[in-house]
Design a protein around this nucleic acid. Structure first.
Lengths: 238, 238
DNA sequence: TCAAAGATGTCACGCGGCTCACAGTATTGT
DNA sequence: ACAATACTGTGAGCCGCGTGACATCTTTGA
């Protein structure tokens, strides 16, 4: 038994090391420190749709994504959802607990099967305090995300649904788009409901607005995938 | 002439030192480094209502507030405004330029006569890179503000005007409130338009909603100041 | 393979709150 | 002290979009 556990943890540590090395943020970190980290982290595989944490859960760790995609969103009691961001491989999430370890105030959920590395908050904090470059990079990530949220806030308040959806489609195109003969195809399985959550609207309105866009030849709806045909036109609505 | 300028800059440096020492964030910073900073900063007095920077302005410095109050907000071409936050004495603003020095995407404006210390971006960045504790504190401030923005975003999307205004009043009460016989008086000169900008609504709707609150005895409007009479009641609307 | 669950299309209805408009009141600067 | 400027109160009208309600159509998993 003891042998077994030792072997496992040694193996896990090696695997953890492998994963941590692939996180851009941790690139410059000292090998010895990374080793320490690897010994303390937990690796988890999260199936699609599974919740990773909910509002109120303890903010006692930060997460790195080794594979898959994670959605961070605000949720209300009655099931309404506002998506803050998607996070992909190499990125981190749940990082705001670093400041004080207060409970989560958002939800994190796997969008597809995901592999994540959980780092205890205190350990990550120590790491930040011991590596000035890392700490600065961390601050930059937090700041960059804040800027994105501020932009989102502006859009939500000032723009109508058409403008918000057009902007979203262009964003998704830039992030997940693949060129094809008719234009830029959004290579991301995304439902109307998800789009609605991203721009603070409703499923029905998204259906309608997408149909309007199609009528104006701004895009095509081949079954369940969106192809942007006229990005200038969409940009003009923004 | 030269004597004059020398004297001035020596005096300014001393004044800058005096001001910088009063900034909580800089408390733990090494004296020598602070001295360096003091030599390079610029102190400015900004009259009420004057704009400090606009979207598109270079993001080449960060600002510390030594006195007065500064409003940071998103603005549109046609004059609509969404206030992100008020910043007071001892706080910093314009700090997101640290990451990359890209142009501002918000407006900063003095709400009352203000004294601010301007620190060149590069210098502040060097300071952060040379002081790990400071860098961590800085990250925490950026993160804390991000959390506030995320909460604001949630409110803007999910809540109606009544709920948002009630929440705002409680917030203002907590921040600027002074106890008086009838309840908690908001000790901050604020117009209906400003409230509207804070919660993404309009002046007219604020007038109306405040009147409704008054009718329900949730608050009193003594001329131009708001007194919260029933904070539980207001909290219940949130 | 087939039922159950999930996603989309569409439409009628209603309402919260924004717009516009104007009158009255308070502040401010000189 | 008194214009000039800024702020508040109120109401009518309108409209974007959320709500609710179904009828397909697609995907999924046992």
């Amino acid at each position: 038994m003891v042998r077994g556990r030792k072997d496992d943890s040694a193996k896990d540590e090696k695997r953890a090391m492998w994963y941590l090395r692939k996180i851009p943020l941790l690139e410059g970190v000292d090998q010895a420190r990374l080793q320490e980290l690897a010994a303390a982290v937990e690796i988890r595989e999260i199936p699609r749709r599974q919740v990773i944490y909910l509002p109120g859960d303890p903010g006692d760790r930060v997460f790195f994504i080794n594979g898959g995609r994670v959605k961070c969103s605000k949720v209300t009691r009655d099931g309404k959802e506002l998506t803050l961001a998607y996070r992909g491989a190499g990125q981190l999430f749940g990082e705001l607990c670093i400041m004080d370890g207060t409970p989560r105030d958002e939800m994190a959920e796997a969008m597809k099967n995901a592999i994540i590395t959980e780092v205890p908050r205190e350990l990550f904090q120590e790491l930040l305090m011991s590596d000035n470059d890392l700490c600065f990079s961390f601050a930059c990530i937090v700041g960059e995300r804040r800027r994105q949220i501020e932009t989102k806030l502006e859009h939500l308040v000032f723009r109508d649904v058409q403008a918000k959806l057009a902007a979203l489609l262009l964003e998704l195109g830039a992030e997940y788009g693949v060129e094809c003969e008719d234009g830029l195809q959004i290579g991301l399985k995304i439902t109307h409901q998800e789009m609605a959550n991203l721009i603070g609207s409703t499923r029905e309105t998204i259906s309608l607005t997408l149909a309007q866009f199609k009528k104006k030849s701004l895009l095509d709806l081949n079954g369940r995938t969106v192809v942007l045909k006229n990005q200038e036109g969409l940009g003009a609505m923004t």
